[in-house]
Amino acid sequence: MRKKISVSLCLVLLVLPGLLFAAGTKEKSSVGGWKPTKTITLVVPWGAGGSSDLTARILAGEMENRLGVKIAVVNQPGASGATGTKAAFEAPKDGYTWVGNADMSIATYQILDLLPEISHRDWQAYLGILTPCVITVNPDSPIKDWDGLVHAFKTREVAVASAGIGAGGHVAAETFVKYIGTKYKHVPYKGGNPAVVATVSGETEVVMQLSQEVADMLRAKKLRAIAVMDNKPLMITGLDLIPPITNYIKEFPTVAFHFGLFIPRGIPQEAQDSISEAFAVAVQSKALKDMAEQKASIAVDIKGKEADTVMENAASLFSWLLFDTHVTKISPEKLGIPRP
């Protein structure tokens, strides 16, 4: 008798979770011409919890409703996102495989020789989040403001943390020293969060990662902001405005990253239309706006031709920067990318 009870208890506990979670997956009516019939796979070629991942998950959660199917987020980290991006690119072009990534990564895989055959022009971008790089320092650092920052870079070797070669913080630092005309010590970490933590702990003095990644540490006064690499000030709720870098150097370009979805070109037109429509709704959602506010970034709605321009600009800015700083040996000219 007891055996029977325990066996049935075991069965119930095995089946119950399935039922409970299945209940949440009721199909909803779809819109537009395209009626997806199976689960859409959204490949995020970065670890769970990063900027690409957060953006992709929120967009997926909102778009599911519109499209009427489930969107499965799959993290495929490694090789700066190249292998995951490649896998998604090679999937059938039917609109059921998407990538969640940053404009900069997609735009530089070719120049970094990671995906020599896939150009940023092969993707249709749907960009939902814009996040600029912020120059921040450890609060115990003698650097208090812009003048102090420039003075420090000119008089000693300042250690700058970044999320790795070619990552946001690295590109920002290279652009910065290009305009100041000095050298610095680049200290790469494995991802944005470790780089920011290293600056909080004082292992490095400066970090120029994305505003998303530093927002909470700034709010908690564990980091001090010097300037944002944009032409307008950055507002972080609960803090003073962070001055734009163009206050000090007029012609300094905006170093900012877009996060969003990338879908290979060549999928059926009606699928493209439906995705566009669902995306337009998703970027207006409260969830994305809340996330943007919380993470000190901006919710944007860039798709179609406008997205192509953004991608083209990103490719030109970042490819030439990587080439000029000898990170890559391939000339962007060869790939038909004009100098900014």
Partner: peptide, 8 residues
């Protein structure tokens, strides 16, 4: 795996 947990 495929239907409930959306695992590829």
């Amino acid at each position: 795996f495929n239907r409930i947990f959306l695992v590829p």
